[in-house]
């Protein structure tokens, strides 16, 4: 009975629940689904992480390669993020070129990386003006149940922390790079960040960490990305219901708390792996 009601009149169905300040999956309005993190499971990658945010599953693998730096910034290496939403993860994605949503998410991740001062890109320099590391960060969704941005950023961050790059020396005479087979190093992460996504239901109710159903029914979505030390990094609000400054302030506050949680989750996970 409940299932038919849900299919026929999803909005009404949700309203019934939200009246009671509870969501159909049993969460409170401001509650975030349980977050499970696993790092280093893909050994062919230089760094990898798998995140489960409720049912939403994202895996991120990072491969390093050599590249020439840009002329303007001869000392800086760079990151190339890409988000993939393959048909495997949900019936709503079709085989073929990347969906618009995948492209938008990729762009958002790239913008966030640019503005976040996440790591010191000069760390990735091998030989000035000649050779730098480029890190391809591929995030792939395996199970799509909403809030892909949060999940992707957690996976990305954890994978970056997991990266081990071989030490490279340049042979003076030949100019060729030699990779050390025994020594490697991790990246020096300066400033971590995390995203928190909110959906607006029925132009009024703010829900944190929406599922795919909630995203579909939402009249507006907003993602707030803040750094570990609480500074605002990016806000992504693609149209929809307008929100008041107070509401936005409230969201930022909640995002700051969430960012701290995520960072300590990553710390704990990495610690447990290393031990």
């Amino acid at each position: 009975m409940a299932a038919e009601f849900k299919t026929a009149q999803p909005v009404e169905y949700y309203k019934q629940f939200l009246k009671e300040e509870v969501r159909p999956d049993g969460r409170e309005l401001g509650e975030i689904r349980s977050t499970i993190l696993n790092v280093g499971s893909i050994s062919t990658a230089h760094g990898s992480a798998l995140v489960k945010l409720g049912n939403t599953t994202v895996v991120c693998g990072i491969k390093g390669e050599f590249a020439s730096p840009t002329v303007e910034e001869p000392k800086k290496g760079y990151l190339v993020p890409n988000v993939d939403l393959p048909p495997l993860c949900s019936a709503q994605f079709k085989p073929g070129p990347p969906s618009i949503q995948a492209q938008v998410t990729s762009q958002l991740v790239a913008d966030t990386l640019l503005s976040s001062n996440l790591l010191n890109y000069e760390d990735l320099c091998i030989k000035e003006g000649n050779m730098v590391w480029v890190l391809y960060c591929d995030m792939m969704c395996l199970d799509y149940d909403g809030n892909i941005i949060d999940a992707c950023l957690i996976a990305l961050l954890a994978a970056l922390r997991n990266v081990r790059l071989p030490v490279v020396t340049i042979d003076e005479d030949t100019g060729l790079a030699e990779l050390s087979s025994t020594e490697d190093r991790s990246l020096n992460i300066v400033n971590q960040f995390a995203a928190t996504t909110f959906s607006v239901f029925d132009d009024s109710i703010l829900l944190v960490d929406p599922t795919v159903e909630e995203e579909d029914l939402a009249t507006g979505l907003m993602t707030v990305i803040v750094t570990q030390d609480g500074r605002l990094c990016n806000i992504h609000k693609p149209g929809g219901t307008p929100l008041s400054t107070d509401q936005i302030q409230d969201c930022i506050g909640r995002a700051q708390t969430r960012a701290k949680e995520i960072c300590s989750l990553i710390d704990d996970t990495l610690d447990s792996i290393e031990r």
Binding site: I42, T44, A45, S48, V59, G61, I62, K63, N82, P86, P87, L88, P95, Y136, D138, M140
Partner: peptide
Amino acid sequence: QYSMATFS
């Protein structure tokens, strides 16, 4: 559909 992750 068969696909291989870029990092596989």
